Simulated scan of single mutants.
Amino acid sequence: MTPTHSSSLPSLLGVFGHPDDESLLAGGVLAQHAAAGAATAVVTAPWAPDSHRADELADALAILGAGKPRMLGLADARVPDSAPGRPRLCDAPLDEVVEGIVEHIRAVRPQVIITHDAYGQLTGHPDHVRTHQATVIAFHAAGLEHRYPQAGAPWRPAALYAATHPHSAVDTLGALLTAVGKKVLSVPDEHVTATVDVTVWSEQKMAAISARRSEAARERSLPGILARLSAPARESINATEFYTRLDAAPGPVGQRQLTV
């Protein structure tokens, strides 16, 4: 896949910790960019490509216009049989995880990459944290010709964003998560650098979330929580997505001391 420069929006690659995170956290933006003609794709770290969740992921990505699943095939930290015979994502050597992500970055050649924030996306799931760490490294390594030469020709994405949740926007969602015993790790509002209204794509986003049939049937999963809400309540949660830009623009050439 090559970058789509004719689109009014940049091409995207999402890198996420589970086969539902892309829909929950960035489904609106993925649908928005696909609708504008931009190339979009998603890399998912845990779960095996022949698992039931891979089939659900394929259905969700088709709804969002984000291509076919790209899976690293590692195991979920809390579901070891999600990838039989493979290490858990949080136990796999970091360098191997980074290389796997770099290979997909160089194959897709996106202008923008989206991943989890450093806190592990509200609940602090270890797979989210590990995916964040590996993606930040891969974002920089993908453009370096001497790093992972076997993973394809170098490609330097233009921007890296973390999907996140500001303190001011988690009242409803936070209450739903704490009611089932989950954490709520939001960030200060000033950490958010992009607030995207995805109301137009919220039904499409919810359809992708609902494609997670096995998760929607579970009481404590976020797809299950959202499935039990009224349509207006779901839309109030799904209609806005928040992102923090993580990459820094290069400073001026010729500096003789560190500046801010």
Score class of each variant (00 low, 15 high):
residue 215 E to Q: 14
residue 239 A to Y: 04
residue 209 I to N: 06
residue 222 L to G: 00
residue 187 V to R: 12
residue 186 S to R: 05
residue 225 I to K: 02
residue 221 S to M: 03
residue 221 S to G: 04
residue 249 A to C: 09
residue 251 G to E: 11
residue 253 V to T: 08
residue 238 N to M: 13
residue 190 E to W: 14
residue 219 E to Y: 07
residue 241 E to L: 02
residue 211 A to F: 06
residue 231 A to R: 11
residue 189 D to Q: 04
residue 194 A to S: 13
residue 185 L to E: 07
residue 249 A to Y: 04
residue 238 N to C: 09
residue 238 N to V: 10
residue 211 A to D: 06
residue 190 E to R: 15
residue 237 I to Y: 03
residue 227 A to M: 01
residue 205 K to H: 01
residue 218 R to E: 14
residue 188 P to I: 06
residue 197 D to N: 13
residue 250 P to A: 07
residue 219 E to F: 02
residue 197 D to P: 09
residue 242 F to H: 15
residue 189 D to M: 08
residue 198 V to E: 08
residue 227 A to L: 01
residue 238 N to T: 12
residue 201 W to Q: 11
residue 240 T to L: 13
residue 232 P to D: 01
residue 205 K to L: 04
residue 254 G to E: 04
residue 236 S to F: 00
residue 240 T to I: 14
residue 250 P to D: 03
residue 204 Q to A: 03
residue 198 V to F: 07
residue 189 D to L: 05
residue 233 A to T: 09
residue 198 V to P: 05
residue 214 S to Y: 04
residue 240 T to D: 05
residue 188 P to S: 12
residue 201 W to F: 11
residue 193 T to E: 15
residue 186 S to H: 08
residue 230 S to I: 00
residue 227 A to W: 01
residue 241 E to S: 06
residue 199 T to W: 04
residue 235 E to L: 08
residue 222 L to A: 02
residue 188 P to L: 03
residue 233 A to W: 00
residue 228 R to V: 07
residue 224 G to Y: 00
residue 209 I to Y: 03
residue 186 S to G: 04
residue 251 G to D: 09
residue 206 M to T: 02
residue 185 L to V: 07
residue 203 E to T: 13
residue 212 R to A: 08
residue 239 A to F: 04
residue 221 S to P: 10
residue 225 I to T: 01
residue 189 D to E: 01
residue 234 R to A: 06
residue 187 V to Y: 04
